[in-house]
């Protein structure tokens, strides 16, 4: 009987002491946090992709509440998250369009030549620094997967020497854009369907020497989409570029491109 009593008393005493310690800790050691931080964090998608420039969603939320960051930097969350955050913080939300990564190259191994057999670490920057890269086109995708390696959503895969983005998974964080040594990944509006998949601005004869599907700047796409006034395309040297402020929607442009470098929802998975 005494044994049971002693045990009960000891445990009760330990419990009481612990409760007291907790109470004291709560009183004196508590970290006061703005309750809005929790709300904002909850409103963010939790992808922790880092695309906003902060180390994860929590960090961005703290910066938002502290007023050192503006809402709208979260690409994965999109409009929904941004407007909710704006509501929590009591500021006006600006509508943004969901953007996704586009690899502006379609020179697969069967379309673009390789000038050498690269032997070394599997990284685009390392390959690009070795004799300028093994791809004949010095603007094209090397296909060693630097973008795929940094993608927090595993939305990029390498197929036939070319990076391919899955539109459904891409959250538009832009990590791949900055890691690509060829700088050929661009964030484009998810709604745009017609794209020029080439990044080589040099003259036609130079392009055709190294790639079967490189843009030569013939401007047929511009002509077929209503001319210069329509403003669906811009040109950089001998390279056509879709004007994403005013993207073309005419799918027949694809068949009309003599170099076959205009594609409709090209690298994206079907059924989006």
């Amino acid at each position: 009987m005494t044994a049971i009593l002693t045990a009960t008393l000891v445990i009760a005493a330990v419990g009481a002491l612990a409760a007291l310690a907790l109470a004291v800790a709560d009183r004196y050691l508590a970290v006061r946090e703005d309750p809005r931080i929790g709300l904002v964090t909850a409103a963010l998608p939790g992808a922790n992709c880092g695309g906003c420039g902060f180390a994860g969603c929590g960090d961005y939320a703290r910066a938002l509440v502290a007023g050192t960051a503006a809402p709208g930097a979260c690409a994965p969350g999109g409009d929904a998250a941004n407007s909710e955050i704006a509501k929590i913080l009591g500021v006006a939300a600006e509508a943004t369009e969901r953007r996704v990564a586009l690899v502006k190259c379609c020179g697969t191994r069967s379309e673009a030549i390789r000038v050498g057999d690269y032997n070394g670490i599997c990284d685009c920057a390392a390959a690009a620094a070795t004799a300028g890269g093994d791809k004949g086109c010095r603007y094209g995708c090397l296909g060693y997967g630097a973008c795929a390696n940094v993608c927090p959503k595993h939305a990029i895969r390498i197929e036939d020497g070319l990076a391919i983005v899955d539109k459904r998974l891409c959250v538009g964080c832009g990590k791949c854009v900055s890691v690509c040594p060829r700088r050929l990944i661009e964030l484009v509006p998810a709604s745009a369907t017609i794209h020029v998949l080439c990044n080589n601005p040099v003259r036609g004869p130079e392009v055709t020497k190294v790639c079967g599907v490189g843009c030569i700047g013939c401007r047929l796409c511009e002509k077929n989409s209503g001319g210069k006034e329509a403003g669906h395309f811009t040109f950089n040297g001998f390279l056509a570029h879709v004007n994403y402020e005013n993207p073309p929607a005419d799918a027949t442009l694809v068949a009309k491109c003599p170099r076959k470098c205009i594609k409709e929802d090209p690298h994206f998975e079907a059924g989006v």
């Binding site: 070394g120 670490i121 620094a129």
Partner: peptide
């Protein structure tokens, strides 16, 4: 292993 290339890669970045 491409040890030197790894070093070069690190230095470049």
């Amino acid at each position: 292993r491409d040890v030197t290339q790894f070093c070069r890669r690190a230095k470049a970045s």
